[in-house]
Amino acid sequence: MTKPSIVFLHGSGTNADIFRLQTRKLAALLQPHFTLLYPDAPYPSGPGPGVLPFFEGCDPFATWMDDSSAAAEDAYWSLEDDDSGAARLLESVERLVREEGGGGELVGVVGFSMGAKVGMEVVRRLEGREDAGGGGVKVVVCVCGTVPYRGGGDVAREEGGRRMLGRGVVRVQSVHLMGETDPWRAEGEKLVGYFGEEGRKVMWFKGGHHMPAEDAVNKQVARIMLAACGKV
């Protein structure tokens, strides 16, 4: 029997193999019901925050975009452009689902840090298709997410954020996991506003910018995802 797929998007300065280790508790709960897919980001990078020394020797590291400069808006967030990075990323995710997902429909996205905002845009694109009869994602999990338009200074960030919100919020059910001591928690809180209020859940865990370690938190997230996908 073909299982539906969930895509896991790692943070910046890490890779898919590392993210498999970081998400092992949640993955173990989802594995019986879904095909779990872990793509590598396309652009080489140095190690991200907290990657070293624990993951020394686990390179190469990668990132989804360079959002550290004013060039970021043109490089990735030209969202109205069908040739933008977001569109290309969606194509690569869909190809991964076809080739490694065994034909199962993409029903969920789990994204950490930069992977959360990238996942948000993938789902936004799919929802645009859903209006025309496509799509199928039921739930998005954002862990310690960062907001779009970090690059380009305060004015560019605010303008980019307004433009994105003007295109409408992401409508699918969402879970937002935020560490109480995450130095980027303000960005995670702001990212919540890019998702519709209906079906949106914010959960706090003890810790910083990392996947939650508590079994109870992972079990709760798994239950939400299973219910959203009709698996309970």
Rank of each mutant, 00 (worst) to 15 (best):
G196F: 05
A156S: 12
V139L: 13
G179Q: 10
L96H: 08
S174D: 02
W184T: 04
G102H: 04
Q173D: 05
V143T: 04
G188C: 02
V155A: 10
G136Q: 02
Q173V: 01
R162T: 03
D82G: 08
S68A: 12
A75F: 11
Y194R: 02
V170P: 01
D83E: 15
R129Y: 09
D74E: 10
D131F: 14
V175G: 04
G166V: 02
M203E: 13
Y194S: 01
G133Y: 11
E159D: 14
A71L: 13
R157Q: 13
E187Q: 15
E189H: 10
G161T: 03
S92A: 11
G151F: 09
G119P: 08
H176W: 08
E73G: 06
A87R: 14
G108P: 01
E159G: 07
V192I: 12
L90C: 01
G152C: 12
R88A: 02
V202G: 02
V175I: 15
A71R: 13
L191W: 13
D66M: 14
S84G: 04
L126K: 11
G135I: 03
G108Y: 05
R171F: 08
V122W: 14
S84Q: 06
S92L: 03
V110N: 07
E197R: 13
D154T: 10
G133D: 01
Q173C: 02
V122I: 15
G188F: 02
V192K: 14
